[in-house]
Amino acid sequence: MSKPVKAVGLLSGGLDSTIAAAMLMRQGIEIQGLTFYTGFCVVEHNRRSKTRKRKKPVRNEALQAGAKLDLPVEMIDISGPDYLKVLTDPKYGYGKTVNPCIDCRIFMFRRARQYMDEIGAQFMFTGEVLGQRPMSQRRQPMNVIDRDAELDGLLLRPLSAKRLPPTVPEQEGWVDREQLGDIQGRSRQKQMEMAEEYGIEDYPSPAGGCCYLTDENFGRRILDFFEYEGKENLTMDDVMLLKIGRHFRVKPDVKVVMGREEGENKFLERYTPGRWRLETKDVTGPTTLVEGHPSDDDLRQIAGMTVRYAGSKADPDTPVACHYEDTERILEPSPVEESVLEAWRI
């Protein structure tokens, strides 16, 4: 008996990649799932930062899909300086916000191809659907991505395969092209029918904006960082902070990040070293981090902002504790006009 053909499947755990895996499993392909940790996934961030009192935990969908389909899933951490270069200097530019989708795809597919070679798989596949996403899932960008990622025809997109030129796995007869899909566009109707056919239940609803880089608020904050702090200085710690809380640019060299709920406050506390941390005394309020070099007047105003967003038990004179490394100062807050606050808001 000949050895089964092995493929690496880029698995997000969403409906499309789960169906793509199920289609190929039905054809007898041995599948190794692969998922990347980028640091920009909205779901992953919500899992990390929101309050721990939530009744229903947010699941890692890729792992859940692997468990459901009984296929192994490898998680690879690609967050780091090389991936950040994709964000700061994309060859193919940004989409509507600061989303370098084409460059990101190329980066991921190159890494997936490397992994494919490492484990001795013959080809790789995704759940991509032609025309589903505006930037990276149109025919022309797909060609660019495949070329720049040096995939050599080894990437199969099972859901739209019949609408695309035959790939190596189809030409070699490893998979039967006739049994692959011809889906195009944004409707999920066909995928839902297929999910029923394959017995796939309990799948996540279509995510759409599942990446922070497509989020307008996050995009504004990234551009603010590029302008005032320099894109070459961006680190993953900065990225983590850009995703959370309220942000205010008080001065070119003073920025405020303020938690909006208990989970965010706890998350921000992890980033205290090297920053001022402000908290209201005796009454519940936000955790406020200050980046840069605030003057005493700045700190009093930021204390005022902290009181402004504290609970109803705080009044304008509520004292605010300011911590920096091992020192603590108690400040009387200076009120900040709403119009000033709005002007500072990023």
Binding site: R47, R59, N60, L63, A67
Partner: peptide, 14 residues
């Protein structure tokens, strides 16, 4: 606490 969700799924899939 997310590990209580993720570890069973990771073990099952792998």
């Amino acid at each position: 606490p997310q590990i209580l969700e993720d570890m069973p799924a990771w073990c099952a899939s792998n």
